[in-house]
Design a protein around this nucleic acid. Structure first.
Length: 204
DNA sequence: TGCCAGGCCCTCTTTAGGGCCTT
């Protein structure tokens, strides 16, 4: 097996107090699953106390309340544990640029670092599911009839759905495109290719 | 005081603007 196969990754999702760590927003929950050789083998989920009260929109959107966060560990403590969970694996998220910004921000606060590269299920889905009505996580889960607990906008539930989407996309790359056992780097390259070029790879 | 994301991607584009995605 290739050392850096796409079927061994950590898939993560953050719930946050807003859209931008540069504007003072913080992570309030992290959820992640470890995929090894194409199977989910471990899970990580923790609330993160941001040190301030989150607004009503975020409480309603996520179902995470200020009373739930009051007794949660502070972000830096959670991130230190999450670094151990990541290990040496590469990372996957839906709209990874968002989760990467928060991961980097929380890592900087905790004075920790990680080595894994990020790949993005949103960018890949826009290329290999070009006819989808949109590329929101929930839409793609329904489109591909993938497992869902029915819970949305909670970190572990979203990370699990993203993991199922990632595995399905690897499967579809093999079935639809004839790409067998791709490396993480190859999938990453594919997710940045012009859409027309990806479409031309599709088996007729 | 008032403002406020940012990366990707398309097009009526590149001397720009706006929709999509994430919370």
């Amino acid at each position: 097996m290739k050392k850096n196969n796409a079927d061994t990754v950590v898939v993560l999702d953050f719930e946050t107090s807003g859209l931008s760590p540069d504007m003072g927003d913080r992570a309030i929950e992290i959820g992640a699953v470890l995929i090894e050789a194409g199977k989910i083998t471990d899970r990580f989920q923790q609330l993160m106390n941001p040190g301030f009260k989150i607004n009503s929109f975020i409480q309603q959107y996520t179902g995470i309340t200020n009373s739930m966060l009051r007794n949660a560990d502070i972000g830096s403590e959670v991130i230190k544990k999450f670094v151990e969970f990541i290990g040496k694996n590469n990372l996957v998220a839906h709209n990874a640029s968002f989760d990467r910004r928060f991961l980097d921000s929380e890592m900087a606060i905790a004075k920790k670092s990680y080595n894994g590269q990020f790949s993005c299920t949103l960018l890949l889905a826009r290329r290999i599911y070009q006819n989808a009505q949109d590329h929101k996580l929930g839409t793609l889960i329904r489109l591909k009839n993938l497992p869902s607990s029915g819970v949305f906008h909670r970190a572990l539930a979203d990370a699990e759905m993203t993991a199922h989407l990632w595995l399905r996309m690897l499967e579809d790359l093999e079935v639809e495109y004839g790409i067998v056992n791709p490396s993480f780097e190859y999938v990453e390259k594919l997710s940045k290719m012009p859409k027309q070029k990806v479409a031309s790879l599709l088996r007729k």
